[in-house]
Amino acid sequence: MSIETKDLLLGLSEVEAARIMALAVPVRIPSGGVLFQLGAEADRLFLVVRGRIDLTLPMRIREGEEDVLLEEKHPGETLGWSGLIPPHRFTLKAKAQMETELLAFPRAALLAHFDAHPAVGLAVTRNVATVIGHRLQIFQTLWAREMQRMVEQRYA
């Protein structure tokens, strides 16, 4: 199975990547379908093969609650890293913007593979850490910008 991965399998040889790919289970989500809900138990990692997944957070607007788009995941990108990181709960909602195909990597299968191939485990964990680190840096910056605006509005 040859699928371009932009983050999850970076640094792995073709053989190592193929072994990881062999652990995956294909998932198809119809347009508008929900891949996972905010707060749901996260027991797998996903790789987008085709289509697009929107990651959203709920926002209370007027009388109702609306999903606000935070991030889009395109083919080759990984999502659902909460599947590998405790407490294993999704912190966003994932919804298919169009009919979308993904590969799901069950945590148990991944961890067992990492135990058997520590070098692969290190490489994949490092790739996941890069995704998490980037998200952290983005949100840290967003928070700092929001704080700055609040200070300007209230205490200028």
Partner: peptide, 12 residues
């Protein structure tokens, strides 16, 4: 959100 993320990316 898009503009702020772009600004954050620019900062990073």
């Amino acid at each position: 959100v898009r503009l702020e993320q772009a600004a954050a990316q620019s900062f990073l």
